[in-house]
Amino acid sequence: MSGQLLVFVICGAFAVLGALGLLFFHKAVHAALSLALVMINLAAIYAALDAALLAMAQVIVYTGAILMLFLFVIMLVGIDRRESHRELIPGQGVVAILAGIGTLGLLVFAILGSFPAQAVGLEAANGGNVESLAALIFGSYVFAFEFISALMIIAPIGAMVLAQQARLTAKKTQRERAAARIEAYAQKGVHPGTLPNSGVTALQDSIAVPGLLPAGRISTSSVSQAMVDRDAVVNVHAVSLLTAQRFAELSGEVPPAIIKPEPVDLVDTKDERELLK
């Protein structure tokens, strides 16, 4: 087995694994990283196919620039936004996979037997890969190159126009926001003041700890929705039980009259149930 074939087999297997990861990872960041795996392995295969310039460009342009841009946008739009798996068209997934298998079959039939049995190789054409490519790009392909460079100038202008749009709605003044709060209080009974603080317990005081109401129930508005989205809300009842146990161990006696109700009894709204889940 030649070294070239070895590179192809190993990197090809990793590239297919990365492509499968792109299909199956739920989080967009993981998908982006598995795409990076595909890109790097394709670069190695390019190098094995005597395309030194393209291998370097693959690493620098794709893995370096394009995937960083992807990660940037993923950070911008919220790293943990879950993808809904509800199918708007019933059976779409199954049909898509069947279509994929069919396309693969067609492509394989088209490919098999259509290549020359022995590759010519690039030793003759490749008198120094970069020099030969430069002679082609600035020789017979010079007009295509000029058009491509015009495209590269126009595309960032388009991106700037798209990204720097005007505000969709006018910015609300302080007076308008105060009026909206009072109106919400009048109509729906929403408390017009500030939201409650997050909780402070003996063991934890992060913003993931919900505050407790006087009756011992948790206050749903004391933790940010971002914490709920990330499943990061601390179960304060479990923490308080743990604290009570610690105290009991230290003092050697059962602590008196600690509020230790069952968590289910504490929870009386659907929101709280979801928080504590």
């Binding site: 297919v16 492509a19 499968l20 792109l22 299909l23 997934g93 996979i97 396309t103 693969l104 492509l107």
Partner: peptide, 15 residues
Amino acid sequence: LAAVLFVLGAVGVLI
């Protein structure tokens, strides 16, 4: 290999 990668990408676009 290119065909396999292409089909995986196409299925990804669909699902």
